[in-house]
Computed example of a mutant assay.
Amino acid sequence: MPKINGNEIRPGNVLEHDGGLWAAVKVDHVKPGKGGAFAQVELKNLRDGRKLNERFRSADKVERVRLEQKDMQFLYEDAGQLIFMDTDTYDQVQLEADILGERRPFLQDGMTILVEFYDAEALNATLPQKVTCKIVETEPVVKGQTAANSFKPAILDNGVRVMVPPFVGTDEEIIVNTETMEYAERA
């Protein structure tokens, strides 16, 4: 595994630190008036979800880990576990349901998800960037309400509340960006 300097850490990097696997969530490069510059890094443990704030000077060496990525199909949820299947080998993998956090409602049956592995251990899952959802409830269209940035609340078929443009109505399908959890376009 390659070693990188402390000032080369970027958000999303996976590091081996203190005997565990940590993902860099937020990185701030600080140059105080006195002393050397350093990177203030917020780390999240990939196995148990603990968070840690750590300082890395440019002279510090950290082990950067490359995770193997596989596309897997979501099958079902059972007792707080999400079950995924490799479509090539039909192997099944379990991950905690809370690994997706607030994006969990966007997971749909049969959806293809990117699962990251370290050796044979599944550590993380990433939803597709855009997901198609149906609007079940929103306010009716009001004529003349065409201001540049006017949005109205809408409730999707998965229970998530998003803001949509005024021309979008009930029973329409829209595409939602899962990273920002915002309306992207009509389906």
Rank of each mutant, 00 (worst) to 15 (best):
P2F: 09
P2Q: 12
P2W: 03
N7L: 11
E8F: 10
E8R: 11
N13C: 12
N13E: 11
V14L: 06
L15Y: 09
G19F: 10
L21M: 08
W22S: 07
A24C: 11
V25F: 06
V27D: 12
D28S: 14
D28R: 13
H29Y: 07
K31F: 10
G35V: 06
G36V: 11
A37I: 11
F38Q: 03
Q40K: 15
L43N: 05
K44D: 01
R47P: 09
G49E: 13
R50L: 10
K51I: 10
K51R: 15
K51C: 09
L52E: 14
N53Q: 14
R55S: 12
R55G: 06
R57H: 09
S58I: 12
A59R: 15
D60T: 12
D60P: 10
K61L: 11
K61Q: 05
E63W: 13
E63C: 06
R64C: 07
L67Q: 10
Q69K: 15
Q69A: 15
Q73S: 07
E77T: 04
D78F: 14
G80W: 13
G80E: 12
Q81Y: 10
L82A: 10
I83A: 07
I83K: 13
I83R: 08
M85N: 04
M85F: 02
M85S: 06
T87W: 04
T89S: 04
Y90H: 05
D91F: 00
D91N: 07
V93N: 02
V93W: 03
Q94H: 13
Q94V: 05
D98F: 11
I99R: 15
L100K: 08
R104A: 07
R104I: 03
F106M: 01
L107R: 05
Q108H: 04
D109Q: 13
G110N: 14
I113L: 08
L114A: 15
L114K: 14
F117E: 03
Y118V: 07
D119Q: 15
A120T: 13
E121Y: 12
A122D: 03
L123E: 04
A125S: 06
T126C: 03
T126V: 13
T126S: 00
L127G: 05
L127Q: 04
L127P: 05
P128N: 03
P128E: 04
P128R: 03
C133I: 04
I135S: 02
I135W: 02
V136C: 02
V136P: 01
V136E: 01
E137T: 05
E139S: 10
E139K: 15
E139F: 13
P140Y: 02
V142P: 00
V142T: 11
T146K: 13
K152D: 01
P153K: 04
A154Q: 09
L156E: 01
G159Q: 04
V160T: 10
R161H: 04
P165M: 05
V168L: 00
T170E: 01
E172D: 03
E173H: 02
E173D: 00
E173S: 01
I175F: 02
I175K: 00
V176S: 06
N177C: 07
T178N: 01
E179K: 12
E179D: 12
T180Y: 08
E182L: 02
E182G: 07
Y183T: 00
A184I: 03
R186F: 01
A187Y: 02
